[in-house]
């Protein structure tokens, strides 16, 4: 009898399982996943809206979080550090679940970010770091990026490879994290290469007109200048104009978020090479980190995660149709 009973049981089980498969099984993590986002708020404080990087991050975060029912708010201080500090202060009392902050420099928001974490708000920093580390940092490894740029300049300009060895740097604002950390990386490399001469190291306030005037004077004084590296492609359209007017062959290595304007610039010869930290990728990293925080619910400030963005060195030759991204309406 036993084998028969087993067979009947087996058949019954098989029939049951078949019925279940026909109706579909509910994913056991689904409910908890969607519940984790109900009624959550994410506030975003960039240095200013209105340029490719900050608009791109906002777009990516909105696309990833809003369909889950997360409220996404933007506070735009429009390049005013005081207004930004006020926005964060008022957010601390409004208590959103997450603040995503883009620091204008390494110092200004440091104490506020600590206070926000103490008030039970997760703090995510993007691209420009504060001296105070918070739950998540997403952005380029600027020291490493500086090293890579330094090495690239050595490769292009070293007298061994037929260059003059003379290079110039155009920074943005001297106190911005992007400038401070990158200079460390570049200086480390230049210290190992005495054959490379840094003839000019100036700041242009992220402004194309200032960058142009600086580049024009530097090229004028050093007609055999080999390369200029600038810290932002939007500013370096000015550097490029100065190079074009001088009629000299100067290698322009710039950097940015990989917006379509960078690829256009490579295509029409404005830039020689662009170091790209992919903005949609950074937005996805931030969104994923936020999703993880909402599901794991750690104490704010208890875990510090750093997610460095992969860098891409784009030139006209290795650029592909999908290498850059664009904003809607661009």
């Amino acid at each position: 009898m036993r084998p028969i009973r087993h067979a009947i049981l087996g058949a019954a089980l098989a029939a049951f399982a078949g019925a279940a498969a026909a109706q579909g099984i509910d994913d056991p993590t689904r409910g908890a996943y969607y519940d984790a986002f109900k009624g959550k708020t994410v506030a975003y404080v960039p240095v200013a809206m209105g340029f490719d990087l900050t608009e791109g991050w906002a777009m990516g975060l909105r696309e990833a979080l809003e369909p889950l029912g997360v409220t996404f708010e933007v506070r735009d201080p429009n390049w005013n550090t005081n207004a930004g500090a006020q926005a964060i202060t008022s957010l601390i009392s409004e208590k959103p679940d997450v603040i995503v902050v883009h620091n204008p420099d390494v110092q200004s928001y440091a104490r506020l970010l600590k206070k926000a974490e103490e008030a039970g708000i997760y703090v995510v920093q993007v691209n420009m770091r504060s001296s105070y580390s918070t739950d998540v940092f997403v952005g380029a490894d600027y020291v490493g990026m500086g090293r890579q740029i330094g090495e690239r300049l050595v490769e292009v300009c070293s007298p061994k490879n037929g260059g003059s060895g003379k290079i110039a740097i155009t920074q943005g604002v001297l106190t911005a994290a992007a400038s401070v950390y990158q200079m460390k990386g570049i200086n480390d490399v230049l210290a190992e290469h005495p054959e490379i001469q840094l003839v000019s190291n100036q700041a242009a306030d992220w402004d194309a007109t200032k960058a142009k005037n600086i580049a024009a004077t530097v090229i004028q004084q050093n007609p055999d200048l080999c390369a200029i590296t600038g810290f932002w492609d939007v500013m370096d359209v000015g550097t490029a104009a100065a190079i074009k007017e001088s009629g000299k062959n100067v290698y322009l290595l710039t950097q940015g978020g990989g917006n379509q304007s960078a690829c256009d610039g490579l295509e029409n010869g404005t830039y020689s090479e662009v170091v790209v930290y992919n903005v949609p990728g950074q937005a996805r990293d931030m969104a994923n980190a936020i999703k993880q925080l909402f599901q794991l619910k750690p104490e704010p400030g208890s875990m510090k995660t750093t997610l460095f963005t992969q860098l891409e060195f784009l030139t006209k030759d290795n650029m592909k149709p999908g290498s850059c991204w664009s904003l809607p309406g661009q």
Partner: peptide
């Protein structure tokens, strides 16, 4: 001269 207009100069 720089093939673009930076409206931030207003501030």
């Amino acid at each position: 001269s720089v093939a673009s207009m930076n409206t931030r100069v207003a501030n």
